[in-house]
Design a protein around this nucleic acid. Structure first.
Length: 567
RNA sequence: UUCCCGGUGGUGUAAUUGGCAACACAGCAGGUUUUGGUCCUGCCAUUCCUGGUUCGAGUCCAGGCCGGGAAGCCA
């Protein structure tokens, strides 16, 4: 049996499992699971839970199950099952043939419920939902016993059987555990085990009229599968005593539940409910809109599973509430893509450049390196000609200090091409710069000056007649700032939505080597960032999503300058 | 004293379980550079507070303070 890698941090979960293994509990076996409810696709928050469970099993040479926690027919939909499977497989998890469904255990759960009734540990209660709430008490005051609490075993058995047979309407009765209505933990005040729901289950059809609640079902699910460590997020901590109580009363295999803090990030929504609202109200293009933190969205945006895993691992495991900086995610993406993404030239906001001393109607093929981080990526050919496009932001008529790019009279390098000098600025009627006239130095072919002279910057460019037109989508944070707690309570969290979270650039120009690039293709636009071909692309128009920008020193200088001026 | 769980730089995690507070991200300052990328170097903390135990406390003890969670027939 493989042990945890010694150089790795002994976070509290790894430690707990290692201790259990060392003590020989469960015969030294480790078996974890991830139990998503099929009511929405997976997001970054889920990814943390998925990866903790999966990686712990993997590290300790154990097994990992994927289990649909489908105990509520009113919320779950079969198409999410497939989406979840794709998401989790994409992340890199393997569960062999162990894909399970909680609903497959309904018979077993029902038998266990009968057992508890027989033991005097459960009773049928006729209180309504409202009455139940009223008698539960509050955190500071005890609840009161249900008038039905002392029903006899036979009557309970009969009533539960009739509940199961569908004799009563929804909500008429519940099966409750008989624990303690004065318990300081509200979850222990005779919690509901079964509710009546005449609903069609997507897998069970109309077979059931009663459905188990989470607390009753979950431990049984874990137990049936022989799970040893049930690793879940912190909101279930208050439920652990109940998890343990149920399993103890049943007397079956008893996994250990351990809770960890959820993954939170600033300016993003990590709640399936809220994400669903955005999707259903059409505020985003769908569950895979690249602005969302869903796995399908980050995938579409161009993140690799390796980058996501790296991010999760770097975020760490603890119980303290932690808000992990978006910059860390972006760093993981850059580090990963820097190694693997081929470089190309693409101009987002084109500015025409005419090389006046370059012969008309001629052109040449220049060699460009595909990836300076990876020699094996080789080189490619990029066409050069008299008319080019460069980035609008790379020219300024009145350059501020530290602006190294092109300006009237200055010489710069066109990457892999020539040194050019701007000789004339052509403006439109409104004074806007519409074209640049430049001269080139034929001796600098490839980008090196034989006389050793230097230029302060290198620009990316495309040949006008060869370039492919493209659409590029840039993404900003979904939320501007954390909504105020009042707005949050008012349900007004949407007031914090960033109206500029999507910026669509049309009329972009990319080098011809990108012709035919397929959806999902990731590359670096030199000097700009990492981009990924979107499925919206057609034969005539490539659509790119910006995964993340490159680190941009010039942008930081400008930002600092603006901040300084504001003061 | 309603119960449960947490408090280590701007952020997230460490600290051989009582022995020089470490790593990463972010930021700042440099160097290299045919990407203002990558890479390299340097800088950036009286461990929530107050007492106590100890040669020695982020770690142990006591009291306090602050934050999160809990009153679904959701998961």
């Amino acid at each position: 049996m493989r042990q945890a890698a010694p150089e790795r941090n002994m976070h509290f979960i790894r430690q707990a499992i290692a201790d259990d293994v060392a003590a020989g509990r469960n015969g030294g076996r480790v078996h974890t699971r991830f139990p998503p409810e099929p009511n929405g696709p997976m997001h970054l928050g889920h990814a943390k839970g998925i990866w903790i469970n999966f990686s712990m099993a993997q590290e300790f040479g154990g097994l990992f199950n994927l289990r649909m926690d489908d105990t509520n027919p009113t919320r779950e939909e079969p198409h999410y099952v497939q989406a979840i499977i794709e998401d989790i497989r994409w992340l890199g998890c393997d569960w062999g043939d162990r894909l399970f469904y909680a609903s497959d255990y309904f018979d077993r759960m029902h038998e266990y419920a009968v057992q508890l009734i027989r033991q005097g540990d459960a009773y049928v209660c006729d209180l309504s939902a409202e009455q139940l709430r009223e008698t539960r008490g509050t955190p500071t005051s005890p609840g009161t016993n249900s008038p039905y609490r002392e029903r006899g075993v036979d009557e309970n058995l009969d009533l539960f059987q009739r509940m199961t047979a569908g004799e009563f309407p929804d909500g008429a009765r519940t099966l409750r555990a008989k624990i303690d209505m004065a318990h300081p933990n509200l979850n222990m005040r005779d919690p509901v085990m079964y509710r009546i729901l005449h609903a069609t289950h997507y897998r069970q059809g109309d077979r059931w009229c009663v459905y188990p609640t989470y607390d009753w079902a979950h431990g049984i699910e874990d137990s049936i599968e022989g799970i040893t460590h049930s690793l879940c997020s912190i909101e279930f901590e208050n439920h652990r005593p109940l998890y343990d109580w149920y399993l103890d009363r049943i007397g079956c295999h008893h996994p250990r539940q351990i809770e960890f803090a959820r993954l939170e990030m600033p300016n993003t929504l990590m709640s399936t409910r809220k994400l669903r609202e955005l999707v259903e109200e059409g505020r985003v293009a769908g569950w895979d809109d690249p602005r969302l933190p869903t796995l399908s969205a980050v995938r579409r945006k161009g993140y690799t599973p390796e980058a996501i895993r790296d991010f999760i691992q770097r975020a760490g495991v603890s119980k303290t509430e932690s808000v992990v900086d978006t910059a860390l995610l972006e760093h993981c993406a850059r580090e990963d893509l820097n190694r693997r993404a081929p470089r190309v030239m693409g101009v987002l906001k084109p500015l025409k450049v005419v090389i006046t001393n370059y012969p008309e109607g001629e052109g040449e093929q220049l060699e460009a390196i595909n990836n300076p981080e990876d020699k094996s990526a080789g080189t490619r050919i990029v066409p050069f000609s008299r008319e080019l496009y460069i980035e609008r932001d790379d020219f300024m008529e009145e350059p501020p200090r530290k602006f190294y790019r092109l300006t009237l009279g200055r010489e710069v390098r066109l990457r892999y091409a020539y040194f050019i000098t701007c000789t004339e600025v052509i403006k439109g009627e409104d004074g806007e710069v519409v074209e640049l006239r430049c001269t080139y130095d034929p001796a600098t072919r490839g980008g090196d000056a034989p006389d050793g002279r230097k230029v302060k910057s290198t620009l990316h460019w495309v040949s006008a007649q060869h370039a492919l037109s493209a659409e590029v989508r840039l993404y900003g944070p979904l939320l501007l700032d954390e909504p105020s707690s009042e707005a949050e309570e008012d349900g007004d969290w949407k007031s914090g939505l960033n109206p500029d979270s999507l910026e669509t650039l049309t009329g972009c120009m990319v080098e011809p080597s990108l012709k035919g690039a397929e959806a999902g293709y990731r590359c670096q636009f030199e000097r700009l960032g990492y981009f990924c071909v979107d499925p919206d692309s057609t034969d005539d128009l490539l659509v790119f999503n910006q995964t993340v920008t490159l680190r941009d020193r010039w942008a930081r200088i400008q930002k600092a300058r603006r901040k300084g001026e504001a003061k």
